[in-house]
């Protein structure tokens, strides 16, 4: 079993901009909701050019580390290792690359090309915050969030330091809707740290078989219709928002399960939220 504390949370979905909105379940009507968050960490020119995935990833990561640092926790963003998890990366960039290569490969944009690497968000985060520790970017198909969670918690356990996990996905454009019919813009981020009793706890074990289940069952009342692959994080976010004990089974792939237990703080001084 691997244990950690949750020191910070960030979340963004259309109509649910930020963890406070998520926690309260107050959705902004679609008509007035922003289509993507603003990555305030980036310089203005790059903020505008940044692809959706980079924007949402940096925005939720910023929210999570801000929360983690707001309660007297010693979380130095410059020495915080990072795990970025996304099933597809930036689909609009992939669509652009494929379409350009089919029409005029010599006109390919160098900026769009370097935006296409899966670790683009990790790179921009490191540049924007001065973070010089390890940064990884992973994918695991439909099990991307669960594997990202596992990798982040394994890093907390083996490095004995806080670790930032960022999970995000972007909507498909053009012909790619065939490959990723369910993707929506969504991101969430967590700062995990070695376990302490004052914070919400998380404990995971890896077991056989691919099971998906949430105990206690609850209606996914906060963002029920969000179809992004990384939105598997929804059940975890809901459990954190409710502030009570919960167990979530995530398929880690075709043959393994990540059993995730969320434990409310043992002490009264609840730090999350």
């Amino acid at each position: 079993m691997i244990e950690a504390s949750v020191l910070g949370i960030g979340a963004w979905a259309p109509g649910l901009a930020g963890w406070p909105a998520w926690r309260a379940g107050t959705r902004t009507p679609a008509a007035s909701a922003a289509t993507r968050p603003v990555a305030t960490l980036l310089p203005a020119a790059e903020r505008r050019r940044a692809p959706d995935g980079v924007s949402v990833a940096l925005s939720v990561a910023h929210e999570a580390v801000t929360m983690a640092g707001a309660h007297g926790n010693v979380v130095d963003v410059r020495t915080l290792p990072t795990v970025f998890a996304s099933a597809f990366g930036d689909l609009a960039i992939v669509d652009y690359l494929c379409a350009s290569l089919a029409s005029d490969p010599l006109a390919l944009s160098p900026t769009r090309f370097h935006h296409s690497v899966h670790n683009a968000a990790a790179g921009y985060w490191s540049i924007a915050t001065g973070a010089t520790e390890a940064a990884t970017a992973i994918a695991a198909g439909p099990a991307t969030f669960a594997n990202g969670l596992l990798e982040a918690l394994v890093q907390v356990a083996t490095r004995s330091t806080p670790v930032l996990l960022v999970a995000f996905d972007t909507p498909a454009t053009g012909p790619l809707v065939r490959a990723a019919p369910n993707a929506a813009l969504f991101g969430c981020a967590f700062v995990f740290a070695p376990r302490d009793d004052a914070s919400t706890g998380i404990a995971v074990t890896v077991g056989p078989g691919a099971s998906e289940r949430v105990v206690p069952r609850r209606d996914a009342r906060r963002a029920p219709a969000l179809p992004s692959p990384s939105a598997a994080a929804m059940a975890f976010l809901d459990a954190l928002a409710d502030g009570c004990d919960a167990t979530i089974d995530y398929a880690l792939g075709p043959a393994a399960t990540l059993r995730t237990r969320v434990t409310a703080p043992a002490l009264r001084a609840q730090r999350v939220g």
Binding site: H118, N119, I138, A139, A140, L252, G253
Partner: peptide, 11 residues
């Protein structure tokens, strides 16, 4: 194989 299975993509 049936254990944890991930793709790392940092260029």
């Amino acid at each position: 194989l049936e254990g944890p299975c991930m793709t790392v993509s940092t260029a």
